[in-house]
Design a protein around this nucleic acid. Structure first.
Lengths: 417, 417
DNA sequence: GTACCCTTTGTGCAAAACCACAAAAGACAT
DNA sequence: ATGTCTTTTGTGGTTTTGCACAAAGGGTAC
């Protein structure tokens, strides 16, 4: 699913050039050859491969080096030495089914443009062959540069379309569908907008590395991705049968874990909006994702384990409720009474009530969270019912209290800032 | 607590006239005499009463005939015959400690202005005395008319102030306090606005009867009352120790019951707003009361047993939430899935979920409400969890679902209208 | 028809929530 | 210091709830 979205007519000739290049190198060295871009995406592979390893089949079929291989190579420092070494280096690792290879980095003024891989198999390349490979790497530089720049052009209109979608400029689902088709972007039935927020703005090179990681995920197909300040915004799509809260949460979690592990970069949070079939709801999904991010900042404890808008629960509405309360200025007499008692008697009935509601009125969990005996909790709840005159067996009342509790908290925070 | 609020300097002379009148009649008939207005409020009682009965002490002390006596007289048709009969009639009922009396209605062109009561005790009035009484009733007509008209003037500024309070025109608590003091209106610490809505607009005479009933309640002190179209708006006050949800609910319930019973008039609903100490929150309390009324119309079943704004729970916010949802147009995927299943398999999981939440997730109550076996309910809940992927042990999620459930319902209703 | 799946109801057991009571500790005022 | 009131924790027993399993009924597709 890798680079196909960048395909357009003016790029095909370049791709043909790549194929000719690898075939020529392959013929000269009498070994299978693979050309890759800087992001581990396959640009071309030599014609006369008599493919023997599973890894290579996967690489060619998916047009990308398998995730586990990349992972392995990073973990064992192979990628790093490849990046730093001017000369071709030999890679012999049996463990993950990788054949013996020689790899060289294609570089232009320090910038990494891609890699050439030569599969040695059981007959290692001689020194002259290595030398030839080194030269070949230099020879292909210009072509790859051209490839990148023409790709950038496509990329710009690509970015442009994504922003239009995010901003809801195109109102018709059909129209969007056609545009995607024209751009050769194939979506599954469902899509949603994911947003990952970095601790601080990063450099463009980091952006690319992060996006590579994102695109190489196994759970969802990334249709678009773009950086906007600290935010990485992505439109991801998946088949209905594979779309569940669990799956999306896992996707977000794993991606954030990987960036941390592989690149040492931490996102503050990663979230996603509503999941829709209609492309004209992408803007909605984006806004929803931002809402979740906002909530994560305002009430981190409360929605610690929520990443999707669909699971925000009442917090979807908390900002509206907060504003309503600010305007209306009504008191919640239940809470007033409890607060008064707490202050007077140095108690913590309010906190108890909050945690109790946080834990869905489960006495066991609440007692644990408060580090108190269940009987103590029951006693406090009795007092809350008595003092606050609070009907703890009335769902509606509890919601009213919960809303007022949380909005009060937020308003207090607002005042501090 | 009756008529004192109408007292003002230009009225005192009239009240003196009344005292002179009753003393004169009392002297002539050699019996204690009481003069009352049309609303059973005492205008004057004769000087030389040697009071013997508890009822009379109460009447004079409270400046109003005791509630239970009025109740008794209405129930036994005495009031009715008094209203209809031109001549004085004799009332002999021992049962409630009432001494033997002769009463006559003071009438002017059909309109009832008041009553004269003469206590006979053990020496009944002779026919001439009755005849004299009849004439006296006619003689006092003009004075009472004057009394009413001057009272109306006071009443107008009275009404005016109330509207200012309801509309929040006076911003300062202190200023309002002073105005009340000037008008000789004494409030307890807490007050709230109650609103009762009639099925249809009523005549002024009915208004007065209803207000009399309202003022004669035992639970709260009525500081102001006014009719606005179908709505009877009242500002009531009470001491903090007597102020509870139960007390206010009882007040509203009993008053509505009495109007139905005594006057045959039904209110659609009676409600009250927030309870405040500060007079400048009366407008807020009024708006809150109207909010409750609005809810009573929109979701009668849901808030059937709620009359006070403080107990509205989440429904305080339902209109805001409804508007938010109308604008935002997001779907609740939990509910979507459940709905879809219901439609496909002709089930009623959605209704089950709603009733379940309505009953605070109490399986027993829910099963009863749905007329199904608890195991059936448990099975359905299991299916709801499975099909809708709904975490029924997460308070926040449940709130989100509940809000969306109820707002959806309201929006559907809105569309029908 | 019949096979299959979903739903309802019944039974019984185990877990949990709830409640009453008591002892002990702590807070606070006289 | 003393007594009173509130709070915490423990014990033990009852009630309620949750869940597994089984049987029966209902609808649908082949």
């Amino acid at each position: 699913m890798g680079e196909e979205k960048y395909r357009s007519t003016d790029l095909t000739s370049t791709l043909n050039d790549f194929r000719n290049f690898v075939d020529k190198v392959s013929d000269t060295l009498q070994a299978p050859v693979i050309l890759q871009d800087a992001h581990n995406r396959l640009l071309a592979h030599s014609k006369h491969d008599n493919v023997t390893s599973l890894v290579r089949i996967q690489t060619i079929m998916t047009r990308q080096i398998p995730e586990k291989v990349v992972d392995y190579l990073w973990k064992h420092g192979v990628m790093l030495s490849l990046l730093e070494c001017e000369q071709p280096i030999r890679i012999n690792v049996k463990e993950i089914g990788l054949e013996n290879r020689v790899a060289v980095c294609i570089r232009d003024q320090g910038e990494v443009l891609g890699y050439i891989w030569v599969i040695e198999g059981d007959s290692p390349l001689c020194d002259e062959a290595i030398e030839y490979l080194s030269k070949a790497a230099k020879g292909i530089r210009l072509l790859i540069s051209q490839y990148y720049s023409s790709m950038n052009k496509a990329d710009k209109s690509h970015k442009n379309l994504f922003w239009q979608l995010l901003l809801g400029n195109i109102k018709s689902h059909q129209e969007i569908k056609k545009k995607l088709y024209d751009m050769n972007i194939h979506s599954y039935k469902l899509c949603t907008v994911a947003v990952f927020r970095l601790l601080e703005e990063a450099e463009t090179t980091l952006h690319h590395q992060i996006m590579d990681l994102l695109r190489s995920n196994q759970q969802v197909k990334v249709l678009f991705d773009i950086f906007n300040g600290k935010d990485l915004i992505a439109l991801v799509s998946m088949a209905p049968e594979k779309c569940s809260v669990q799956a999306l949460d896992r996707f977000v979690g794993q991606f954030m874990h990987l960036t941390k592990e592989r690149l040492g970069i931490s996102f503050t949070e990663g979230v996603y909006g509503g999941v829709y079939e209609e492309y004209n709801k992408i803007d909605l999904s984006y806004v929803e994702a931002l809402t979740v991010l906002d909530m994560k900042e305002q009430l981190p404890r409360e929605i610690e384990e929520i990443w999707g808008y669909g699971n925000l629960g009442m917090y979807k509405y908390i900002n509206i409720l907060k504003e309503a309360r600010k305007k209306h200025d009504g008191k919640n007499f239940f809470l007033e009474r409890i607060c008064e008692y707490d202050n007077k008697h140095n108690q913590q009935l309010l906190k108890t009530l909050e945690i109790y509601l946080d834990h869905d009125c489960n006495t066991f969990e609440t007692a644990n969270a408060l580090y108190i005996h269940t009987n103590t909790l029951n006693y406090r709840l009795k007092r809350i019912r008595e003092i606050g005159d609070i009907p703890l067996n009335d769902f509606n009342q509890k919601i009213g209290i919960y809303i007022d509790l949380k909005t009060k908290k937020l308003l207090k925070e607002d005042q501090l800032n």
